[in-house]
Design a protein around this nucleic acid. Sequence first.
RNA 1: GGGCGGUUAGCUCAGCUGGUUAGAGCGUCUCGUUUACACCGAGAAGGUCAGAGGUUCGAAUCCUCUACCGCCCACCA
Length: 900
Amino acid sequence: MEKAYEAKKIEDQIYQTWEKSGFFNPDKLPGKRTKSFTISMPPPNATGTLHVGHAMMLAIQDLLIRYQRMLGKKALWLPGTDHAAIATHAKVERLVLEKENKTRQELGRVEFVKRIEEFVNQSRGTIKSQVRKMGSSCDWSREKYTLDPELSLAVRTQFTKMYNDGLIYRGYRIVNWCPRCHSTLADDEVEYQEEQGKLYWLKYGPFVLATARPETKLGDTAVAVYPTDRRYKSMVGKKYKIPGVLGEFEVVVVADKAVDPKFGSGAIKVTPAHSFIDYEIAQRHHLPFKQIINEEGRMMENCGKYAGLTTREAREAIVADMKNLGLIDHIEDGYDHNLAVCYRCGSLIEPLPSEQWFIDVNKKFKIQNSKLKGIKSGQLISLKELMQKTVKSGQIEIIPERFNKVYFHWIDNLRDWCISRQIWFGHPIPAWYRQRTANSEPRTAKDIYVGVEAPKGDGWEQDPDTLDTWFSSGLWTFSTLGWPKKTKDLDFYHPTTVMETGYDILFFWVARMILMTTYALGDIPFETVYLHGLVRDEKNRKMSKSLGNVIDPLEVINKYGTDALRLSYLIGITPGQDLKLYDEKFVGARNFVNKLWNISRYILESNKAIKPALSPSALLRTDSIERQETRSELQTLADRWILSRLNKTIVQVTGDLDNYDFSAAGERLREFTWGDLADWYLEISKVENGKGEILTQILRTILKLWHPFMPFVTEEIWSKLNGKSGGLLMIENWPVADKKLFSEAAEKDFDLIREIITTIRNLRAENQVAPAKKIKLIIVAGGAEKLVQDQSHLIKFLARVEELELVKKAGKIKTAATAVVNGVEIYLPLADLIDLDKEKIRLVGEVQNLEEYLAGLRNKLANNNFLTKAPAELVQEAKDKAIETEEKIKKLKEQLGVLR
RNA sequence: GGGCGGUUAGCUCAGCUGGUUAGAGCGUCUCGUUUACACCGAGAAGGUCAGAGGUUCGAAUCCUCUACCGCCCACCA
């Protein structure tokens, strides 16, 4: 074995071995497995590259999958990629413009989509190889892409079903429009940026009113006031002629509670076509619409001389003209407000009226085949209620719990979901319209056909729009398993067990999956939602290219190894809490990986030296630690102690992992591995001989326990341990604790010995006794005399003591450094080595410290309320501590007396 | 405007349903070439648990308020 672990040399090869073994496919796993454990991998964008967020989700999910696989379940981790309609569309649009100097319109739809597909095909492999780099043990044989024919069929099937149930409808409504993407956006795809703008106070007929968007005046059809506002009460219902830059126009005054009487003058202009609030007011009062901004974000023909200007340009021009006409009362600077921008491209969103497809979240329908808690088949229920009830009933559990609140609040405010997009890349909407002549009648229901396949006969043309990416993503947990076909996979692996993803896509995706799955299957998509935090840099900033603080996981892998990167994501984190990443973390993790490597190296090599006869096959047969119990090797206290600790660690780690607390699991394991095993037991094995087999057993166990965290190094060590024919660690059984090896007595005794050793080391260090210097030690052990006697070889070896003298009572040792641990008195006669004054000061300090502690205890014990109200065992504990502390003080004082 | 999270050692964070002389890792200091590891070992220093009230025999932990940092939602036109 190399002196230091070199991840780079072996990782790719190990991954290939795993992949070739076929065990990523749960159906190929050995043994009888009856239970499923399924994770649907949140599909990265097909054209993306691995970033810190992906790396985190892969680390967590692979840990869960490897753990469950070892537990004996059919562990399926289904990978795939997403076509990410808008993102990919925008990327290729830019590329085409750069390379061919053409817009997509100039290129034409067919050619443009071809360009996208070429781009996707050529860059799709990148992310997949990077997912492999992380060590992800996902089943590539089941890999899916959201635009695969089967998944497209699922999309069309779902759409048709929902349309037939009346849950999908076509409506003319105001929508979020991104002029850059040339498409609608769902409400949650809109982000807000703060901007310092101006508030324009307009002279508006009989009103003076404030607006941030004076250019929309061209589309005004009303003025709204708060119903009880005295200033305007008499005007409600009346019509007024308003002078404007394009001549007079008429508005009606309406009363509506949506108006805040404290804002501006209490009267607002209503532009139903270009504001959500105004749209809603207009709906309530049956006000006319006047669209003045088109889909390019420019003023329309009906805006006279302003036609063709962008809204920003139009604002300036109109304000200038209004000033000339004396229509501006005044302009207020420094008005902060939020700008709606596209979450993909950052362009300004224009609210526009448009005919689009929507999912009705409030309409009740008859649910079929319900497997949902408290919901019967045939019951009338809305999608919104489904989303609420599945979580409220506890059938779906969200970790951490506090996101329940966030989730419910989002649903409460949910409006109908606009699902049509005017981009060319994506799932075509399975709706066809009867072709009409220019002057045929308005379109009726008869002229629309919705179905899984195109309608038969001529004269139909398909809706040119595509579906929101999240529509197909919403089907992900079951479309990837074969739905709408009734497949074995769907039957066995669905509902999936855990959905592990970032809290940032709780709405985008998690909620949509719940909606889509409960509707389609009458079942939940997953039992548990585990939400991880977002990755930040060391200054708690988001990682972004413009800040230059992006960490590339592949560089980290290259520098420190995949296992180190994974550990950095798994230990020291809390679910739902953002996590900071920086170099020191990777270094620490890499150091631990190397520590494990060297622990193994020591065990393997000392094993070779001590017991050359021990063949790999012999080792394989010793899988049960229980069998060791009767062997001579198990006779020492240290053996009983380490096995007790090991078996308790198994129980704790298993419990932690079952609770999704892998951070705690990792910390416990590290404590055992580095603290107990490496720092103590391995050192002891240098003085207590013949620990070959027991060490090997421990190593085998911790390799298994660590494997889900750091699969590469553990698999590599495993292969060295067992030779080529030894099989893969990946499919070993998860360790089961042997409770017969728990030993409170061994742990208590060993702790005392350990404390004695630590105390001696401390005394040596404080008195600056060179480590190489062998010293004499006098111990008054009291009741622990036999224990100390039996373990004196450990004390001598680990504390570098040459001679240990056990006495009944300490004589007057003038030149000794002294300490008391658990009633055991320790004297180091250091003669000329010791600085007596310093030692006195040290002892006085310690006595003082103890006296303060004792005072606290006595105080407590003098409190009658404590004695009567606190649990008896706590009172007893306090009493014991007080006695022990008194004893200790007494002994230290005696020694102080001797020194004086 | 509504909601959520954070505030514990120099840094990053654990501390669950109240009882530990408040923990870990990193960093710092001292010492160390003991043949697994200097990507290491031994030892140490370092915290009035953001602040103020309250509940309790007992609060980092529960309640109220305040401050600061961060996030989400709604959106005022």
